[in-house]
């Protein structure tokens, strides 16, 4: 392969833990840098996405911006990967699905303990919220998933090496985890 594999990453309703785990690949990041070119990603701070070979999505869907961004990634990436528990099944943010959005906002901004100046943020710049958190496969086609909160760096490494080499990724049993 002459061109380096182009990768984009993003975090939707996630905590950047998966990105941190990505960085946990440590010195292997240097080898990766030789294999891939990072496109749009919080790690590059590039704001526009070009056509990419691989898109790594951290986090599920909680608002209109997530929806747009995920669709954009899907349109631009040949292979889309759900990276981590939140992208795969909603994860911790989806704990809020047992309440209505209204209840959550009231608790967070009006009635919870220690709130000063209670008010629900209503700046028109803010993205609109989804009534429920959704895993990303409910909105777009997902090619591969890597569960874990976060997925171990070794698992991310193994997955990327498989994808870069054009192999069907088969995660080693000991690297599959949901927590």
């Amino acid at each position: 392969m002459s061109r380096r594999v182009r990768i984009a990453t993003t975090s939707l309703a996630g905590c950047f833990g998966c990105h941190t785990s990505f960085l946990d690949m440590d010195e292997r990041l240097l080898r990766l840098a030789g294999q891939v070119e990072l496109d749009r990603s919080p790690l590059t701070d590039r704001k526009q996405i070009r056509h990419c070979d691989i898109g790594l999505i951290e986090g599920g869907l909680c608002n209109s911006e997530n929806i747009e961004l995920l669709r954009r990634f899907r349109a631009c990436c040949t292979t889309l990967v759900a990276l981590g528990a939140c992208a795969v099944n909603g994860g911790i943010p989806a704990l809020r699905n047992r309440y209505t959005l209204e209840e959550c906002l009231r608790e967070a901004y009006l009635e919870g303990a220690g709130i000063e100046n209670p008010q629900i943020p209503d700046d028109p710049e803010l993205p609109r919220l989804l009534e429920n958190i959704h895993p990303i496969h409910e909105l777009v086609t997902v090619d591969y998933s890597l569960p874990g909160c976060p997925p171990p760096a070794d698992a991310i490494w193994a997955l990327l090496q498989d994808l870069i080499a054009g192999r069907e990724p088969v995660p080693p049993l000991e690297l599959i985890r949901y927590d």
Binding site: A82, P135, H137, L173, I176
Partner: peptide, 21 residues
Amino acid sequence: LQAVGYWLRMLDTPFPYLFPR
């Protein structure tokens, strides 16, 4: 439940989550 999921190499599901209350 988790362990049998690992053993069967369950990584995700094509089905929507029901999020029951």
